[in-house]
């Protein structure tokens, strides 16, 4: 089955070479919208919304930390898991490239989530890191799993073997997401994290609006990064397979030259007549 072509594939250069850029009209519009959204969220978060009665100004970290956590936990890992499942089902490099792109962004956002969480934790809980906190620990483990997944991908040579084996690794790693998500509820006495403020309806109108807008903007940012990373990954894959094709063509050409030479100048062993 032929591989599906990437939607909104990047334009070709005047010389006809693919992969001169990963931008397209769609991504430029999306990028512009995300940029405007980030500015609006910044203004709302830092100048318009009120500080919290208890947490004061540090509550503004909510507008960064929560969207990053949502993108990391629910989007990156979910996309990686679904794409990996599709790799095992369809044996498709398109899905493998999608899984790899999602994992890379997942690692990036998971790292940011841990850093912003620590920045929030220092003034709020009076500690940068709490070893006994299950949410922190399960998130750190998820981060290490994603790093391991990316390191593993770089080692495998055969693209299809890499796709299949990485898919297994990704699916096992994504099981950890359940632990990360439910840890606050399952181990209530072993976490400093509060339960979801969104679900409990604790937030006021403007805070809630800003938070939802921030989540929307970060989802847009994730989509924009995802498209670009996917296109880079797809070009890498094409370059890999093109390299193999070129090597095969060169070998075949060399073999045909050898045959021609053998026909035109047959080697005659001493003492034997042709």
């Amino acid at each position: 089955m032929p591989e599906p072509v990437a939607a909104n594939a990047p334009a070709r250069s005047p010389e006809g070479h693919a992969g001169v850029g990963t931008g397209s009209t769609g991504t430029r519009i999306l990028g512009g919208l995300v940029l405007v959204g980030l500015v609006v969220v910044f203004v709302l978060a830092f100048f318009v919304t009120e500080p919290d009665l208890v947490q004061k100004d540090i509550v503004r970290m909510l507008y960064v930390h929560v969207p990053i956590a949502v993108v990391t936990l629910y989007l990156s890992v979910a996309v990686m898991a679904v794409a990996s499942l599709m790799v095992l089902w369809k044996r498709s490099m398109w899905w493998d490239t999608t899984a790899a792109a999602a994992a890379e962004l997942g690692a990036l956002f998971c790292g940011l989530m841990l850093v912003t969480g620590m920045i929030w934790g220092r003034p709020t809980w009076n500690t940068w890191w709490e070893w006994g906190d299950v949410r922190l620990m399960t998130s750190l483990v998820l981060f290490l799993m994603l790093i391991g997944y990316l390191a593993y991908r770089r080692m495998l040579v055969d693209p299809m073997a890499r796709a299949r084996r990485s898919a297994v690794l990704a699916l096992v790693s994504s099981l950890n997401l359940i632990l990360v998500n439910r840890s606050v509820e399952w181990w209530k006495n072993r976490t400093l994290h509060q339960e979801s403020s969104l679900i409990e309806g604790k937030l006021e109108d403007l805070t809630l609006f800003t938070l939802f807008l921030a989540i929307l903007v970060f989802v847009g940012l994730f989509a924009w990064l995802m498209i670009h990373r996917f296109r880079v990954g797809w070009l890498e894959y094409q370059s890999e397979t093109a390299g193999l094709d070129i090597a095969l063509a060169e070998r075949r050409a060399q073999a045909s030259v050898d045959v021609d030479e053998a026909v035109q100048h047959p080697k005659v062993e001493p003492g034997k007549q042709t």
């Binding site: 390191a151 593993y152 495998l156």
Partner: peptide
């Protein structure tokens, strides 16, 4: 499972602890 993942063309066995230990943290 992870032991078999850590063998194969191009895979170095040094990757095994990196893959296995985080999974065994719980």
């Amino acid at each position: 499972l992870y032991g078999v993942l850590a063998v194969g063309e191009g895979v170095r066995d040094t990757v095994l602890p990196l893959l296995l230990l985080p999974v065994l943290t719980p």
